[in-house]
Computed example of a mutant assay.
Amino acid sequence: MSFELILALVVGFIIGVLVALLIDNQTLVRRIQEANAEKQQAHAGLQKAQIQQQAMVQKVQLTQADMETAVAERTQLEETIARQLQEIEASRSQLQTTIQTTEALKENAQEAQERLEELDSLHLATEEQLATAVAENSQLATDLQLLQGEVALLEEKAEALTNDLTVAEAKSSDLEQKIVAVEAQLTAVESQKDAALGELEQAEQTAVEQSAHLANLQQRLVEMDLLRDKLSEAEANLETADSNLQNLQTKMDDVQTKMSYSGKNQLQLIRGIGPTYARRLNEFGIQTFADLADCDPEQVASIIKKRNWQSVNIQDWLDEAKALAATLNSDG
């Protein structure tokens, strides 16, 4: 073998090595570029997760503010109810006192009515006595006329008749005095009757005022029922706020879990998808869970170049991608 041939073989070998190194260098550069692209995608996913975390923190702060407002409203309502209950207790005491006063007034009114009835009875008896006295006076006047008529006829009985006349005049004077006394009694009875009627009217007016006060208290009781309804509503709102806070806390935990995977390709969070499958899907334009959820199983199998001997359940991938996409949308 000549020196030229050996030199040619060495040169050919060197050229082959250089070509192989050049090809490996291009492959390495392409892998570095792919790694940089994946790093940028991971960085973008991390920024998105951080933005979502900030939004969650703001929601939690707003929810806490709402809860504090609801607690303050509940405290204010409780204070208002306590104050209204105190007023109601005072009103009840006043009402009981008023009822006792009303009962006393009713008893006084009954006593006045009974006294008025007694005065009426006395008035009727006095009128009967007056009628009897008038009748007796009339009878005496008649007797007097008869006696005067008989004077001319019975002169012999003049002295006796004069005596009778004197007695009759005395009786007449007594009857007149009795009439004056009865009239005075009637005047007193009328005065007592007027006083009793005044007391009865005052008692009726007081009863009307107490009825108005009782109606006012009933209205305040209705307002208290409304305040209790508002308190129940505020407690329901507080329970809803607590539930929303718990849901937001759960979502925050989910975001923290997802952020722990921010250094990977998003599709690698799905069970069964490794870096190779994720890269092939990314090259086809499938970057997110939503992109993968919109694909068909046959389309995905073609993209990842699935072999018949590979045990890959693409439908599980799609179902999990749909669930993760829905979770991310609800968090956003």
Rank of each mutant, 00 (worst) to 15 (best):
M1T: 02
S2L: 03
L5P: 00
I6Q: 06
G12H: 02
L18D: 04
L18K: 13
L21D: 02
L22V: 11
D24L: 14
N25L: 14
Q26N: 12
T27H: 14
L28R: 14
V29H: 10
R31Y: 05
A37K: 03
Q41F: 15
Q47D: 05
K48Y: 12
M56Q: 15
M56K: 12
V57T: 14
Q61M: 08
A65G: 03
M67G: 10
M67L: 15
E68D: 09
V71H: 12
R74G: 07
R74C: 01
R74I: 09
T75S: 06
L77K: 11
E79H: 13
T80A: 06
I81E: 05
A82W: 00
R83K: 03
S93C: 00
S93V: 13
L95H: 12
T98L: 09
Q100A: 09
Q100G: 02
Q100H: 08
Q100Y: 01
T101C: 01
E103N: 04
E103K: 05
A104E: 11
A104I: 06
N108K: 14
N108R: 13
N108F: 05
E111M: 11
E111A: 13
Q113E: 09
Q113I: 07
E117N: 07
L119D: 07
S121P: 01
L124D: 09
E127V: 10
A133K: 03
A133L: 12
V134W: 08
S138Y: 03
Q139L: 15
A141D: 15
D143Q: 08
Q145G: 06
Q145A: 11
Q145V: 06
L146M: 09
Q148L: 11
G149R: 09
L154F: 04
E155Y: 03
L161E: 02
L165G: 09
T166I: 09
T166S: 12
A168L: 07
A168Y: 04
E169M: 07
L175V: 03
K178M: 11
A181F: 00
E183R: 10
Q185F: 04
A188K: 13
V189S: 11
V189H: 05
E201Q: 12
V208A: 15
V222D: 10
M224H: 11
L226P: 00
D229N: 08
E233M: 12
E239Y: 01
T240P: 00
S243R: 11
Q249D: 10
D253H: 12
T257S: 15
K258C: 00
Y261T: 06
Q268T: 10
Q268I: 02
I270R: 00
G272W: 02
P275K: 02
A278K: 00
R279M: 09
G285I: 00
I286N: 01
F289Y: 15
F289C: 07
A290I: 01
C295L: 13
P297F: 00
Q299D: 07
S302I: 02
I303V: 14
Q310W: 04
L318I: 15
D319Y: 12
K322E: 11
A323V: 01
A323D: 02
A325S: 15
A325G: 01
A326Q: 11
S330G: 08
D331L: 15
G332F: 12
G332R: 14
